[in-house]
């Protein structure tokens, strides 16, 4: 050994064993603590399931006026009425799905086009500049998007509708198109903008992991860049792109503040996007903002709605995650 002493392991066999034992205990404690930290996430999931479904079950068992059958098939949702409340969730699902579908019409094409542009066309420097911008866009608080919809987009829509009415001579007539101050369309537009970054970034990742050789094969056959992008890269990355769609729609379903602010609080069965609707999330906020007391039927009803929402989004996320995994296995 060298001439400079080292305190551990240098003082005979017994000292060496002592430090080793102490070290092993310390190592095991750290290992255990870190394991607990990672297992905590499972606890969170169990907590979500226990709290949502526990109270949701109470909602059905403790209130004789509520039946699961009525909940799933009823077309009227009015739990806040003092007399004769109604508990059919279909109007809330109607509003939620309408907003999800309309916002997808905005987000899926634009998001996919952005992804194609970033992955196939944009020079590296532009891509590096755009990606953080997308990150920031997706990080803007959703209540801000709601404000934007209510005070900016809705007035524009009102103007457009008024112009249409005038142009076709519908004003004050029976066919006059009416738009509500709170309407599904303007909420859908901002929710669409909100989920564009999600579609763009997952789709772009998928397209960039398509091997170069596929592109080169296509170019070698005389395909243009556009053809290579749309007929080779997009089909090859299709599962990743589909996953981005599923995840984005799930995000739109769970989106809360933008729709609460802009879409209104009128649960109804309608397909007219110019009317006010209420989503599942907006209902939960409406009740919570009015201080629902624990144990009241209002407070229990939000758990039933929350559990329904959780089931819908959780299933979609699992599907999206599954597709992505399969996709990654394809190319890795």
């Amino acid at each position: 050994m060298a001439d400079v002493p080292i305190d551990s392991g240098g003082g005979g066999p017994l000292a060496f064993l002592r430090t080793q034992a102490a070290r092993n205990v310390y190592e095991r404690v750290m290992h255990a603590l870190l394991f607990i930290a990672s297992a905590f996430s499972i606890l969170v999931t169990l907590g979500i399931i226990a709290s949502l479904f526990g109270e949701a079950i109470t909602f059905f068992t403790a209130n004789p006026e509520v039946t699961l059958r009525e909940y799933l098939t009823g077309t009227e949702w009015a739990p806040l009425l003092q007399s004769n409340p109604q508990f059919g969730i279909l109007p809330l699902i109607n509003g939620t799905i309408m907003i999800a579908v309309l916002s997808s019409l905005v987000a899926l094409p634009v998001g996919l086009a952005t992804a194609i542009f970033l992955s196939e066309y944009a020079p590296g420097r532009l891509r590096r500049a755009v990606k953080p911008l997308l990150e920031i866009l997706s990080g803007i608080p959703t209540v801000v998007y709601g404000y934007f919809a209510l005070v900016f987009i809705t007035p524009q829509l009102e103007r457009i509708i008024a112009a249409i009415n005038t142009a076709f001579g519908l004003t004050d007539g029976p066919g006059e198109i009416e738009i509500n101050l709170f309407n599904a369309l303007s909420a859908s537009i901002v929710v669409g903008v909100l989920i564009i970054p999600l579609v763009a970034s997952i789709s772009e990742d998928a397209m960039r992991s398509v091997p170069r050789s596929l592109r080169e094969g296509s170019f070698a056959l005389g395909a243009t860049q556009f053809e290579t992008a749309t007929r080779v890269v997009v089909p090859a990355a299709l599962s990743g792109i589909l996953a981005s769609f599923v995840i984005a729609i799930s995000r739109a379903i769970g989106e809360t503040m933008a729709v609460t602010v802009a879409a209104g609080a009128t649960p109804k069965m309608t397909l007219n996007p110019l009317e006010s609707v209420q989503t599942m999330t907006a209902f939960i906020v409406q009740v919570s903002f009015g201080d629902a007391a624990a144990g009241s039927i209002n407070s229990q009803s939000i758990y039933a709605v929350g559990a329904t929402l959780f089931l819908m989004t959780f299933t979609m996320n699992l599907i999206g995650d599954f597709i992505l995994r399969r996709f990654r296995e394809e190319y890795e």
Binding site: G47, E55, G254
Partner: peptide, 24 residues
């Protein structure tokens, strides 16, 4: 399981966490 679980938790709507916080 932990991996899948974390990915899925990232996709759970934020409002659900509010209900979790309220209950727990």
């Amino acid at each position: 399981l932990i991996n899948i679980n974390i990915n899925n938790l990232a996709g759970v709507p934020s409002i659900v966490y509010g209900m979790l916080g309220l209950t727990v």
